[in-house]
Design a protein around this nucleic acid. Structure first.
Lengths: 222, 222
DNA sequence: TAGATTGTTAATCGATTAACAATC
DNA sequence: TAGATTGTTAATCGATTAACAATC
């Protein structure tokens, strides 16, 4: 047992990006009430090698039993803990347009501990406008709101033109993570984590594949 | 010159996924009317090495000039061509809820040749419901619509429960690519390309980073 | 116990980077 | 021409896979 989560140790980003995939497949198994699974079976479902799965998990600890495999419940519990899903994460959303509403009503957020505490919009929202049970407030109240509430993540679904300004308010208000859907690169201090969702990138990859698809196999190595 | 786009040759997926990034930065430069750029300057903007940028581009051809660099217009033209953005790509969207509406109105699609030809929704839409100039039709007309129109890509923004059924209709209708936003793994024939958008994966990566962020540097190697 | 499967190490493979000859 | 920068090869680095001793 030489697992590697001491502060300063480096977990490769490529491993971290696979954790949500593991989380998803394990959640499905749990929903189906599957009790145990081996690295071979789970890897086959996901489409990776058993070696890779075990190797990835071993970055964080020893979660299986030789000769038996993994208890689905236990492994999911551990993966959730690694991802920080073992406690609630409080979020605000700014920009209650179509995209913002879609994100607010994204299924499964609540069940994973992501909780929208408030939503804000540029325009003065109609009195008591509610989306998914969240009251939409005018954005000028964001600053004072953040003074009163402890918020972990700010979700930006505004047009690109307003995104930087919102990010500045979020950072000043003590938010430590930004989930940015606006197509613009945000400038933020080093200690704030930003995840930028570039929806259109996957469309371009799709376009590439269609364009270069022969009649046989695809000229792509995964 | 030994570039590698003969049928059967393998362009690594990791290279293909960087092309949209190059496209985006080059578009920005073109908008700013920058005429030329060196691999060093462009790589610095993107946050990669000049070596990697040149190496990636050399998979597809020789687009620069020694001692000069790259003409922004020319390189963008070539990258667009590689991505298949040199001709129009016709799309239909199924599921005109919040997410669907957000995708329909996503900026810059039109300018890059992605054209929504029609939108469909499960519920009988109000007569002449228009979103972004696209008429929303009842989904039962999708099948016959696809017989009449040549559509490249189907965009699925329905709830998970309906996604497979829609995918089947799209495939039967001759669509070669599916851009799937529904949180479910679609079963499709080998010759159909599916890009699945897992929005929440990046939120989990954000959560991980927040959770493991020390007071110094992040324990993450990119 | 015998069989199965993990955790881990070592081998392989592929991607990134460095270096430089070619050349604009 | 001299200086700059490409395209490409070779070196390095890191990620994936294979193999197997440990052990449940």
């Amino acid at each position: 047992m030489t697992h590697n989560d001491a502060p300063g140790s480096k977990i490769p980003m490529v491993v971290i990006k696979r954790l949500p995939v593991y989380q998803r497949y394990l959640s499905e198994l749990q929903k189906k009430e599957v009790e145990r699974i081996s690295s071979g079976e789970l890897a086959a479902k996901i489409g990776i090698t058993a070696s890779q799965l075990r190797h990835d998990l071993s970055c964080f600890g020893n979660f299986g039993q030789q000769g038996y495999g993994y208890k689905v419940d236990d492994l999911l519990f551990e993966v959730n803990k690694i991802l920080g899903l073992d406690h609630n994460i409080y979020m605000v959303l700014i920009g209650a347009g179509n995209l913002g509403r879609a994100v607010l009503s994204y299924p499964n957020f609540l069940s994973r501990g992501f909780i929208f505490k408030a939503a804000f919009d540029q325009k003065q929202p109609p009195v008591n406008l509610n989306i998914e049970g969240i009251l939409v407030q005018p954005v000028r109240e964001l600053e004072s709101y953040l003074k009163e509430q402890l918020i972990d993540i700010g979700v930006i679904t505004t047009p690109a033109a307003n995104a930087q300004e919102i990010a500045d308010i979020l950072v000043a208000g003590g938010v430590r993570g930004i989930w940015n859907f606006a197509p613009i690169s945000l400038k933020t201090p080093e200690n704030v984590v930003v995840e930028h969702v570039h929806i259109s990138e996957s469309l371009l990859v799709l376009s590439y594949q269609l364009c270069h698809k022969g009649f046989g196999r695809l000229p792509v190595s995964y």
